[in-house]
Simulated assay, not measured.
Amino acid sequence: MSRDLFYQVALPLIPGVAGVMSRALLGYCGSAEAVFSASKERLTKVPGVGSLLADKILAHRTSALREAETILKRVEKEDVKLLFYTSPDYPQRLKNVPDAPLLLYYKGNADLNAAKVISIVGTRKSTEYGRAVTEQLVQALVKHEVLVVSGLAYGIDIAAHRAALKAGLPTIGVMGTGIDLIYPSVHKSEAQKMLSQGGLLTEFTFGTAPDAPRFPARNRIIAGLADCTIVVESTSKGGSLISADIAHGYDREVMAVPGPITSPTSQGCNHLIKSLKAVPYTQPKDLEELLNWDKALASPKVNSAPQEDYHGFSDEERKVLRTLKEAGPLHIDVLSRHTQLSMNQLSTVLLTLEFSSRIKSLPGKQFALV
């Protein structure tokens, strides 16, 4: 294991260092290792780091490094892959959200940056209707070679994983525990199969037990990994509504399956649709039209023809223009991955190019050349 990785594993082990704060520390200090060698005076200059947090960082540095050493030995022994925020293998969709995890533990063989990723979530108390819809939905995803993401929980989650395994699609289980603890344990069989047809993913270190506050944190990863989050069934206060709200807050597409107004497990979905937080899913065509899958999410093909110079445009603008020329209309998330521009950079570039009438926006957050 590299020296950099040693400090990268240790950094999120310090209490109070997570999400936005961890990236602020990295941005100011330059690396995880530099955070560990920084003085209190330097740490307090980082925006958002006051005297109390600086003291906490200083107090826990040694114990975090010791724990990191133990973790790295176990990672190597158990064939777990560590994905740090700056790693090229880190899921780019997730990286674009403001509270992305600093470090992910991953076991499996799926490409977390697959061209098409859909999260399917729902109530733990699923009905026959919800399970049947989930099965049909996953079957419709086969021709699109979609990566299916869910939370390995009872009900709709495990139904989505099972349907994906049956259909031959890769499926990722995002866990609210350590990578070594399958919860609920009755899903160990499915989890084992997913290691060779998808994978397991968590931000929590080895030995982390299931605890209620960790599952909303898990839900943000489910929402952040996908182009669209689909809620199949949910009660009026279902946990899957958290995933939908998070996805909506990330400006990602959200769909919900409408159900009978007399069914408690459809109240959440019907409310999402009524409040305009979700688009109704009634047939595969709804999803295909929303994401423009017939052409917009196709991976860019290498074009052997001479590229237009686009003289007078910035490097970032040229990247966008050339990518759209080669690939045709693209979803903003796919465009971000292929141009390697952050969402903030890309949004600025797209706005400039729209003003100059070189590109146009399409429904479903797609963009194309004029």
Rank of each mutant, 00 (worst) to 15 (best):
I14F: 00
L290N: 10
V257T: 14
L104T: 03
T127A: 05
H161L: 14
P15Q: 10
K81M: 05
Q340E: 14
R220S: 06
A64S: 15
Q92Y: 12
K277V: 07
I222S: 06
G224W: 09
V46H: 01
A159E: 10
T134E: 03
A191L: 04
I242A: 01
E78N: 10
K45S: 03
D309W: 14
Q92R: 13
L147T: 10
S126I: 06
D227H: 15
K285L: 15
A305L: 15
T127F: 09
A209I: 10
I182D: 04
P15S: 13
P15D: 05
N292L: 13
V20Y: 03
V254W: 11
L112S: 13
C228E: 02
K325G: 00
L297G: 01
S87P: 10
S22H: 11
E253N: 07
D79T: 13
A191E: 03
G207D: 12
D4S: 11
I118Q: 01
E128M: 04
V20Q: 11
E317Y: 15
K107F: 03
T70V: 14
T44A: 01
P329S: 08
A32T: 04
L102H: 15
N303Q: 14
A247E: 06
S87K: 10
E67C: 01
L53A: 07
V97Q: 12
I246N: 01
R218C: 09
Y85A: 00
G364T: 09
E203C: 03
A327E: 13
K107I: 10
V142E: 08
V320M: 10
K360M: 11
A212G: 09
G16L: 05
T134Y: 03
N292R: 15
G108N: 06
I57H: 05
A159N: 07
E289M: 13
P258K: 11
R23A: 02
E69F: 07
V75E: 01
V46F: 00
F204C: 03
L11H: 00
Q139A: 12
I57Y: 03
T282W: 02
T282G: 15
F367M: 09
R162M: 12
P363L: 02
K237I: 09
V97S: 04
